[in-house]
């Protein structure tokens, strides 16, 4: 256990500096606070009505684009940069398995980013006393989205091994995933749009949390595919990254 903590500390020291951390938190906080105007406006008007919850989520998640950019940057710095400048080789000369190293990178950076999304939501809760179920749904979806963007950024970093290219690659892919549901909705492919829309997941989670039977509600909302998509895809991304990272030559 202490060895895992040592590795987490090392990863933190290698990737983060106080200035970087401060800037990341400040930018995310500003973006979220700015989106609060829209969000709270909707919440105040409709009292968190389910009909408007997706609008709330969408407005709130605009700032997630910023998070996508920042998390992609951090993972490309933590993995692709370290592969290209040879720092990964230095670390792997010590008794650390490749698998453990990659898991540490995911966990450390994920844990550093997570409060940056939760804190503004706590602020929202403190200011306007949002329905607790909305609050939980927003945090859960934020956590899922962060995991999605993190694992995708790791996969790009491992495949491309070059910081700028992996940053561009992961950002473009994440942007595509963000805008895809809207496009699919416009061409009447609602089922696939629902599946790919993590914002729709907020509605699903809110309803499921409000109902006595969590699983039954998810099934009734025809949202099992959405839930599976949000869990399975990050797993596929990360397992693929692990597989490639364990096999790659670090010459």
């Amino acid at each position: 256990m202490s060895k895992i903590l040592d590795l987490l500390r090392l990863e933190y020291d290698l990737t983060w500096r106080y200035l970087t951390l401060g800037m990341v938190y400040a930018l995310i906080f500003i973006a979220y606070t700015a989106s609060l105007n829209v969000t709270t406006g909707i919440l105040t008007l409709y009292g968190g009505s389910i009909v408007y919850l997706q609008d709330v989520a969408s407005s709130y998640m605009y700032s997630f684009f910023l998070l996508i950019g920042l998390s992609s940057y951090i993972y490309s710095k933590s993995i692709a940069s370290q592969i290209s400048n040879g720092l990964i080789k230095t670390i792997l000369c010590y008794p650390i398995s490749r698998r453990r190293l990659l898991i540490t990178k995911l966990v450390t950076n994920y844990l550093v980013f997570l409060p940056s999304g939760i804190l503004p939501e706590l602020y929202l809760q403190f200011l306007y006393g949002v329905d607790m179920k909305v609050f939980i749904a927003l945090i859960l979806v934020f956590a899922v989205k962060l995991l999605f963007s993190s694992t995708l950024a790791i996969l790009f970093s491992v495949i491309l091994r070059e910081p700028l290219m992996s940053l561009i690659g992961s950002m473009l892919t994440l942007y595509t995933f963000e805008i895809a549901p809207g496009f699919l909705w416009s061409i009447h492919a609602e089922k696939i749009a629902k599946m790919l829309s993590l914002n729709y997941l907020i509605v699903v989670l809110y309803r499921a949390l409000s109902s006595p039977n969590f699983l039954k509600t998810i099934m009734e909302l025809d949202a099992l595919a959405t839930v599976l998509f949000s869990i399975v895809f990050p797993c596929i991304f990360f397992l693929s990254s692990l597989f490639l990272f364990e096999k790659m030559d670090l010459d």
């Binding site: 202490s2 060895k3 040592d6 590795l7 500390r9 090392l10 020291d13 290698l14 500096r17 370290q82 400048n85 040879g86 720092l87 080789k89 230095t90 000369c93 010590y94 008794p95 650390i96």
Partner: peptide, 25 residues
């Protein structure tokens, strides 16, 4: 191992780096 031109974490202080290595080893 001491690799040729081995990359070192430039922003980290000497003692901090070696302390990390010591713990890992």
């Amino acid at each position: 191992f001491m690799l040729e031109g081995q990359a070192l974490p430039k922003s980290v202080r000497v003692f901090t780096f070696l302390n990390h290595v010591a713990k890992l080893c």
